[in-house]
Write a protein that binds this DNA or RNA. Structure first.
Lengths: 148, 148
DNA sequence: TGAACTGAGTCTGTTTGTTGAACTGTGTGG
DNA sequence: CCACACAGTTCAACAAACAGACTCAGTTCA
């Protein structure tokens, strides 16, 4: 009677869901991207239960999105840093950012936060495109096919 | 002691997380995109517990991603169809598809499924770009700013 | 006329997950 | 020796997800 798992489904959406379907996980990743590294740093920023944070960080390490790096001995202490897989995950957060900004605020309102280029200050609006054509993805034109 | 909610957070990622953090929700949306409309259709495709499906569909209707449409009277029966907000959500699934495909299979292996253009049959690879420049998002160049 | 069938759920008891709060343990600095 | 910092662990209470049986309106079959 365990919670149904999707981590070995044939569908990439299902496998991703298995990971980010744990409550708090995308938020923890968001904080990692804005510079959180140490356990108590996450705690201060997020009021997440400590036991939950422990579990999430552990899983993210297991799955290869974060790695535990020793930043001092005596006493031995570790911090959590993004791996290449973790960095790549920002795409998913960016898509969530865009959809959330577009649809999750009441009519006429906008989110108080925006994404900008660190250097130029220009507004950045994530969009999901087909890499080959550069066109926005149009789901009506898509089909899922069994790879030969 | 309720599960912590994120649905009125100032951050778009958090609000999106609140919705898709419910177990099964992204999978239910995926099925909606591949044509599922009726309750039993979802059940057949997904072996999701019926009570859970009821809850998910109800919430997706409440939140405006699906709408309930009567498709026959006597007996009155409804089906669930994507709204514009629901259709827009495909971007998030597409980003999850891409990241899942790139990172969630063992070295050397690839997912058995691929996304193709319905007409040309050409492979489609979702990518997340800055809409203004068309460049892939680079998180190191990004900053979150309080909107003025 | 009655029995079986459909579609769309609801109900129940059990197991897993999440939460808040208190507690632990190692090592430093004063 | 005491207080403090960091990084957790433990525990009990509550919420969510699970499997499977049950309901209920209306329809079709025999």
């Amino acid at each position: 009677m365990r919670r149904t798992r999707f981590d070995d489904a044939p569908c990439p959406i299902a496998r991703t869901t298995d990971l980010i379907g744990d409550w708090w996980t995308p938020i923890v990743m968001r904080e990692a991207f804005t510079g959180a590294r140490r356990f108590d740093e996450f705690i201060e920023r997020l009021d997440v239960p400590r036991a939950t944070l422990t579990q999430r960080l552990e899983r993210l390490v297991d799955e290869g999105l974060l790695r535990k790096v020793e930043y001092q001995q005596r006493p031995v202490r570790h911090e959590y840093r993004l791996t290449p897989q973790g960095i790549a995950f920002y795409d998913v957060l960016a898509a969530m950012w865009r959809w959330g900004s577009d649809w999750r605020w009441p009519d006429g309102e906008e989110p108080p936060l925006e994404l900008v280029d660190r250097e130029s200050g220009a507004r950045v609006e994530p969009a999901v495109v087909d890499e080959r054509t550069g066109e926005r993805i149009d789901v009506r034109r898509l089909r899922v096919r069994l790879r030969r």
